[in-house]
Write a protein that binds this DNA or RNA. Structure first.
Length: 305
DNA sequence: CACTTGACCTGTCCGC
DNA sequence: TGCGGACAGGTCAAGT
C-alpha cells in the first residue's frame, strides 16, 4: 500500500493535491484491466475501453478547475470529476514507507461498498474510484474532444495562474451583477475551482457579507476579494487541502486546512479577527459561514454628481 | 439572458 | 429503538 488520496469536498486545493499524488504514482504505469459497477460513474463502452484504455500508458496528470485529466500515450485521456464524495485511492503492494505507516491499515479494505471503478495496472497496483453518493464520474475521451465539452467552453480562469487578473475577474463578475457575491464566485465560469469552503473563507478575508449583491460590492472590496481567493486557495494547498477525519495522503499527512479555517464550519465559535461569534446562514442555497461584525451588508451609494 | 430552485445520491444526525 | 426529515455540496436541467 503506498497511497491514499481523499478529500471530502474536493475543491481546487483538494483536487490539486490529488493531482500531485497521482502524478507521482501513475506516470509510466500501463492499464491492464478495469472493473466498473455503475455506468454513471464510468459510462464508457467496452469496445472503447478495450481499444484505448487497456494497454495505454499514463503520460501526464493535469487539472482544469475541479476536473482531473489523466493523459494517455495514445491521444486519449481519462477525465475525472469527484463532485462531493469522490475519492481516488492508489494502492500498490510495494510498501514504500515501511511498517507502521498510517495507510497500512487500509491494506485489504478496498474495494469497499463505495468503490465504483477499479483500474488495474500491469504491475498489479490499483487505482480505486470510490464515490459514496455517485455524483462523480470518470470518462475516457479523445484529447481533441476535451475543449469541445460544454464545461471547458465556459469555465473561467484558473485562480492561481496568470490569466486570473483583476480586470478579467471584474469583467466576469459584471455578468452576475444582481446575484449574491457568494453565488458569483461559486460560478465556475467566473473563476474556476472555488467551492463552498473557499468561497466563505475568501469572503471573510475580504470582509464582504456573502449575501451582498455583486453590484453593491465596492471596487476596493472586489480587489481584496480577488487577492483573498488566491490567498485562501494557496494556504489550503500548503496544508494538503481540507480532508475529512480519517484519511491521510500519500505521505501519511492529513489535509489539515479546516483546523486553520477562519469561518467555515466554525459557527458558534469566535471570529479570528474580532472575536465575534460566527454565524451560519443560507446563501445561494448553501450553508454559509461569516462574521456578522467583520462582514457587514453594504449597499453602494449612488454617486452624487 | 440572468437568476433561482430542484434533482442527482447516500450516509449521518436530530427530534420525536 | 426506529423513523422521518433535514442536511451535506458540485453541477446541470428546468423553471420563473
Amino acid at each position: 500500500m503506498s497511497g491514499w488520496y481523499n478529500s471530502s469536498m474536493p475543491e481546487l486545493p483538494e483536487v490539486e493535491t490529488i493531482r500531485r499524488g497521482l502524478e507521482s504514482h501513475l506516470i509510466g504505469r500501463k492499464f491492464a484491466g478495469i472493473k466498473s459497477d455503475n455506468p454513471k460513474s464510468f459510462p464508457n463502452d467496452e469496445k472503447l475501453v478495450g481499444e484505448y484504455l487497456i494497454g495505454a500508458t499514463v503520460q501526464s496528470v493535469n487539472r482544469r478547475a475541479k476536473i482531473l485529466i489523466i493523459g494517455l500515450d495514445n491521444g486519449y485521456s481519462l477525465l475525472a470529476h469527484l463532485k462531493m464524495t469522490g475519492q481516488l485511492v492508489f494502492v500498490s503492494l510495494k510498501k514504500r514507507f515501511g511498517g507502521g505507516h498510517p495507510t497500512d491499515s487500509l491494506i485489504g479494505k478496498l474495494p469497499d461498498r463505495s468503490t465504483r471503478v477499479t483500474f488495474e495496472f500491469g504491475d498489479a497496483s490499483k487505482l480505486y474510484f470510490n464515490d459514496q453518493r455517485k455524483f462523480g464520474w470518470i470518462r475516457l475521451i479523445k484529447n481533441q474532444d476535451i475543449p469541445k465539452l460544454e464545461f471547458f467552453q465556459k469555465v473561467g480562469p484558473e485562480p492561481l495562474e496568470a490569466d486570473f487578473d483583476f480586470t478579467t475577474f471584474k469583467k466576469h463578475l459584471s455578468r452576475r451583477a444582481n446575484t449574491s457575491i457568494k453565488a458569483a464566485i461559486l460560478d465556475q465560469s467566473v473563476v474556476a475551482g472555488v467551492g463552498n469552503i473557499y468561497a466563505d473563507e475568501s469572503l471573510h478575508i475580504a470582509r464582504i457579507h456573502p449575501a451582498t449583491l455583486v453590484k453593491d460590492v465596492s471596487a476596493m472590496k472586489l480587489k481584496r476579494l480577488h487577492e483573498a481567493i488566491q490567498q485562501s486557495l494557496t494556504l489550503s494547498l500548503t496544508y494538503g487541502g481540507s480532508t475529512d477525519r480519517n484519511y491521510v495522503d500519500v505521505e501519511g499527512k492529513r489535509g489539515n486546512y479546516l483546523k486553520f479555517a477562519r469561518v467555515f464550519r466554525r459557527q458558534g465559535l469566535s471570529c479570528p479577527d474580532c472575536g465575534t461569534i460566527i454565524k451560519k446562514i443560507k446563501v445561494a442555497g448553501r450553508g454559509t459561514h461569516y462574521c456578522p461584525r467583520c462582514q457587514r451588508q453594504t449597499k453602494k451609494r449612488d454617486k452624487i454628481t
